[in-house]
Write a protein that binds this DNA or RNA. Structure first.
Lengths: 237, 237
DNA sequence: GCACATCATTGACTTGGATCAATGACGGGC
DNA sequence: GCCCGTCATTGATCCAAGTCAATGATGTGC
């Protein structure tokens, strides 16, 4: 393990993490008073399960593995932490010793933030606590959204769902018109497919008489049927 | 919109949400003093962008859409909130008016928590704030992990990565032996593929001389090469 | 030992979507 | 007007995995 001076690049990494993103510069400074930047070799242990927790970490480079060992010695990997993410901060909030071992998987550079500094910054600053919770809350929403996007059925279902969202604005009976605000390749990436694929799906929907298109206006002819399509993607609710 | 008495089922939903999961019963009671349970019809507006924020919500049934309208009247969907999740709680933490419209997509049942109650519970209770941050922090880790699992490259890369985790325990030089603790179909589901697929990948690795298998013992012959495989799944760092 | 159930392997086939490549339709600057 | 760049469509092909189905290995109990 070698120690380093905190470079600007390190500070940027820290700022980018959700824990610090809502802090003022002054608050950040206070938290980093005893900042510890160090590099670890592959396989090197960062901290051991059961030892007293004094810092949490942000991974500036490399990959870290968190794992537990049972009394019988078998090992269970709990989490893999990659560049940009933090670990052991929950230990700060909840108290107690480190509940896992942390080990460098490859060559790793870590920023270690002292609990003491962090606590000094946060303990009498309920305003900051609220801001941080706001930030975390948004982060959670963003992540949940992303998971939805990744797991929601086929490309066709995702498109159907997307169109229904848009269609809801102005519908008349079982039909609705949609103004396509963005170029198609943007819409494609929004639903997570390649433009070619979007094009194909759309022409399939046209063939089936579910939508019609002229210029930048898209007409949904049968909202019912479109809904049936998309809802198959929501079986897991 | 129709109002309801909070049933036990509603309370359970609320408890299950990350915002309330770390609270004691007493704290929860305090937050729910002015709990408002209501059902909305499809298309009904729950609150409007720019209006004063007084409550945040947990979706007990159905799907809610959050969207913004620009001055020119075009609509942009920000988020889809499904059963069990909350919305507008970030507004509480960060302050300000509702930054979006909220609309029921289908028939929706909501639990509305008054900012006033929530603030009363949290403002002078830094201990609770810390517990909540701990809970959120864990939630974030869980979600990040899940996204990793969903996006980490091909089945082959995932297997390679899984084996490397196991192999690290006892390695000698560039080789290592692994005791297969679980039947293969369990391992398969752990890395998110069908047993057949696992079998095929494994025999490919055997063909390439990277691993060897006898009984329930798996020998990795070339950790280097296996690592090269798996790291391709980490290009997006 | 035999019978039965679980586990594992292997092959043939299907499918959703990405990729590559060619061509057509606008639209805007000058 | 013409030319060029972005956008869109379409076809051909490829690929990773899932599915279905058949067959081989392992037990484990009795």
């Amino acid at each position: 393990m070698e120690r380093h001076k905190p470079a600007q690049e390190i500070i940027d990494r820290i700022r980018a993490n959700y824990i610090f993103s809502e802090m003022t510069d002054a608050e950040l400074q206070q938290c980093l008073a005893h900042l510890d930047v160090a590099a670890y070799a592959p396989g090197e242990i960062i901290f051991r399960q059961g030892t007293q927790a004094t810092r949490f970490y942000i991974v500036c480079e490399g990959v870290v593995q968190l794992f537990r060992t049972s009394p019988m010695g078998d090992k269970k990997v709990i989490e893999i932490v990659k560049t940009g993410n933090s670990f052991a901060e929950a230990v700060f909030f909840m108290g107690g010793n480190y509940p896992v071992h942390a080990m460098a998987v490859d060559r790793v550079k870590l920023a270690g933030i002292a609990f003491q500094d962090f606590n000094g910054c946060l303990a009498n600053n309920i305003g900051l606590a609220f801001r941080m919770m706001g930030g975390m809350s948004r982060r959670i929403h963003g992540l949940v959204n992303e998971i939805d996007r990744l797991t929601m059925g086929t490309a066709c279902q995702r498109l159907a769902f997307y169109l229904l969202e848009e269609a809801r604005a102005e519908r008349h009976g079982n039909a609705s018109t949609i103004q396509l605000d963005a170029p198609k390749h943007v819409i494609a990436s929004r639903i997570g497919v390649k433009p070619e694929t979007l094009s194909r799906i759309l022409s399939r929907l046209k063939d089936e008489g579910i939508v019609e298109e002229s210029g930048h206006t898209l007409t949904v002819l049968d909202i019912e049927k479109l809904g049936a399509f998309s809802m198959e993607g929501y079986k897991n609710c």
